[in-house]
Amino acid sequence: MLQSKVATKLVVLASLLVAMVLRILPLPKEWFVYNPDWVLLFLIYWAIAIPERVGVGHAWCVGVSSDVLTGRMLGQHALAYSVVVFVCVKLHTRLRAYPLYQQVLPVFLLLLVNQLLIFWTQNIKGAHSTELIHWSPSLAGALVWPAIFTTLRRVRRYYNIA
């Protein structure tokens, strides 16, 4: 029992580290504009799959590390991640019931909420770009969601996490 709990923590943590690496990948500039928020996508998966283990508090901690990782003000990602993960935990039964292609839409909305919150908190500091392409990471994130879902589900089943 204890061992499986530790294993769960390790697997989730490792997956989040992978997501952080993806987040700061040195892609060319034209592509980097579309780079989705991998960390949040992974968090959404774990929040839907094992909501009793991954909660708002964890999301907050991951958010703070994300802030440091991307050089934001501390608290920006923390705020956005905790709100998004809260919604996921609340609605996990419903989200799980949707077929995969229908999950894309709610995931897109959640990613937009995340970007919007970060955008607002960023505006404390100064004006920012409001072009339409600014929101493309959310779209890209929603489009890669099925791949993330199936991959992480395989990981979860392999390590027998429930």
């Binding site: 003000m73 608290g75 923390a78």
Partner: peptide, 9 residues
């Protein structure tokens, strides 16, 4: 968490 984030900000 929201409160803590706002405090951090």
């Amino acid at each position: 968490c929201v409160f803590a984030s706002l405090v951090l900000l």
